Simulated scan of single mutants.
Amino acid sequence: MKLDGIAVFVAVAEAGSISEAARRLRIAKSVASDRLVELERSLGATLVHRSTRKLSLTEDGVAFLERASAALRELDAAAADLAERRGTLAGPLRLSAPVSFTRLHLGPALYPFLRAHPSIELTLDLDDRRIDAQAEGYDGVIRHGPMHDSRLVAWRLARSRRLLVAAPDYLARHGSPDSLAALNGHRGIFYTHRGIADWRFVMPGRTVQVRAQVGLRVNNGEVMRDAAVAGLGIALLPMFLAGAAIRAGSLQVVEVGAVTEEEFIYIAHPEGRRPSAKLRTLADCLRAAFGNPPYWESGLGAPSPAA
């Protein structure tokens, strides 16, 4: 058996296709296919069912995958340990992160980290959907919001306050709601990955969900912010998106006597997988870059208490 064949098999199992596995490994699809065939020949077993629609693992493939994945992780960890002994952070690091947060904040924080550790080979995939870090082969995922996936171990990087905001023009035309009940009569701008049920607020001893009228549903936070600035409705936005617009006066905080549930910017890795020194060092660098409280909340004051 050759290690490059095992790496292709594990990548195919995680990606669900040879072409995607080849892309992740940065090799030609034909090379990936040849390595997989050679591995099956050396094992004397068929590991993957091939069809025109999709690939799936055979029983032998399922049995081989767990140990093959563990072996590759151990080899990666051994190589990383040697690099650490030499005082160097090196090797591949594959992350998933949200689009708008990366463009506005994560990217500027990452660039100094990569300059300081030029031997790290970072692959950064931008995607706002919820990622299965284990199945999709990520070393870590960076997200904002609550933690729901118990298969992930999360490290907090910064708090992520969310506030209701609207353009002064919209509030002048439609009035400014002063209670949760008053929100029902207003148009809302909603993030499709959370849905209209996302407007949940913490009151003494209970959580209240509000469903405003749908003005716009969209899967990008910056478009939500821009739609709010254009006066299309009220949006519930994280401060890393809305802070600058609030300070500039193009958005105004809507006070309804309640705050949203506590959320965070976090980096998470699959449970049961030892996080590398690269990931731990990156987390420390990001915490320092974002600050506590995070710099994007500067000048916005403390959260309003629940009524």
Rank of each mutant, 00 (worst) to 15 (best):
G91D: 03
A306F: 03
S176A: 15
T46E: 15
R24E: 00
S250V: 04
L300S: 05
A97E: 03
G44V: 00
R274C: 03
V218I: 09
L55V: 10
V48M: 09
A306S: 13
V214M: 06
A181Y: 12
L75H: 10
A167E: 00
A22H: 13
R41Q: 10
R50D: 08
P98L: 13
V62E: 14
Y138V: 04
V8P: 03
H105W: 13
D76A: 15
A28L: 08
M1K: 01
V210T: 08
A227E: 07
L36G: 02
H174N: 09
G87S: 14
A307C: 02
Q213C: 11
Y111R: 08
A268L: 04
V208C: 08
R94K: 12
G301C: 07
P146D: 11
A154L: 09
G185L: 02
H148D: 15
L163E: 14
S42T: 12
S179P: 12
R35Q: 14
I18E: 13
A79S: 04
A158P: 04
R103E: 07
A116M: 09
R287K: 11
L82S: 02
D128A: 15
A288P: 00
S179V: 07
D149G: 01
V8G: 00
R162C: 01
R73G: 01
G205V: 00
D178C: 01
L122W: 12
V223L: 11
A135M: 11
L114Y: 03
H193I: 05
V202R: 15
A80H: 14
L106F: 13
L55K: 00
A68I: 01
M203Y: 07
F190M: 01
G257T: 12
L157P: 04
R274G: 03
H193D: 06
G195I: 00
A268W: 05
S30P: 03
R53V: 12
V229S: 05
L124N: 14
